[in-house]
């Protein structure tokens, strides 16, 4: 579904991702794990066309999207929930979700989105900036799903969220994958969350994948060692 081939990403002269190779199967949930500054967010931004790719290619169902702009990548089937959520604070909840409809051409927020997030239905006329962190996270996911993606990218979704809600979110993401049949790529520092949702865990260190293991056979202490500072 999503193929990353020899991806190199740089900010100006300094390269952050050094020829990364990875593949995500349809319906698969993959977690990129790593400590701070190892290139997780940069990888997400590069996949989304926000950070500059210097070499390599990104394909989504065999279509090369490396040269596309962000909005064209969304049309090609990528959706993005950034770190810090980045909802549009001065717009209502409903309007925030509607921005995600731009590429589908739909006019109304699809019912299934409010079914996934009933709290957003109750709050649809409120300004998004006034929602709590957990609600904003749901809104950011709803907005991403509105574009009917094939691959959903989530950058550190657990950051600043209460532990009880983190477990709830893992359950919800799996449900989204099962009902919508999409692939999910998540970058994470919290091992328990990653093990909870991911089919496969990739460990990123200094812009390269140093460890890759499917959940069935994973050695928790080994991954934990990679994450310890």
């Amino acid at each position: 579904m999503l193929a990353i081939e020899g991806l190199r990403v740089a900010y100006g002269e300094s390269e952050v991702i050094h020829g990364l190779e990875a593949e995500v199967a349809p319906n698969e949930i993959v977690a990129f794990m790593g400590r701070n500054g190892m290139g997780k967010t940069t990888l997400m931004k590069a996949l989304m066309g926000i950070a500059r790719t210097t070499a390599g290619a990104v394909r989504i169902s065999d279509r090369d999207i490396t040269a596309l702009k962000s909005h064209q990548r969304v049309a090609a089937g990528l959706a993005y929930v950034p770190q810090g959520r980045m909802i549009f604070p001065a717009m209502t909840v409903e309007e925030n979700i509607e921005t995600g409809l731009t590429v589908t051409g739909e006019r109304e927020v699809p019912k299934d989105i409010y079914e996934l997030f009933p709290v957003l239905l109750d709050m649809r006329r409120r300004k998004a900036g006034n929602l709590s962190g957990g609600q904003q996270q749901q809104l950011a996911i709803a907005r991403a799903l509105a574009s009917r993606p094939k691959v959903l990218l989530l950058d550190e979704p657990t950051e600043g969220i209460q532990p009880s809600i983190i477990r709830e979110m893992a359950r919800m993401l799996k449900k989204i994958r099962d009902t919508r049949g999409l692939s999910i790529v998540v970058s994470e520092q919290v091992l328990s969350f990653a093990l909870d949702i991911a089919d496969r865990v990739l460990v990123l260190e200094n812009g390269e994948i140093v460890h890759s293991e499917s959940r069935a056979t994973i050695d928790e202490t080994k991954v934990a060692n990679f994450l310890s500072v």
């Binding site: 926000i50 702009k69 962000s70």
Partner: peptide, 24 residues
């Protein structure tokens, strides 16, 4: 209108507006 909504989204966060599919 849809255009108005897109305009407001771009104003509030240009990068993110692109990343939800708006041609900024």
């Amino acid at each position: 209108s849809r255009l108005g909504r897109q305009v407001r989204a771009v104003v509030q966060n240009r990068v993110m507006a692109g990343a939800v599919g708006i041609d900024t």
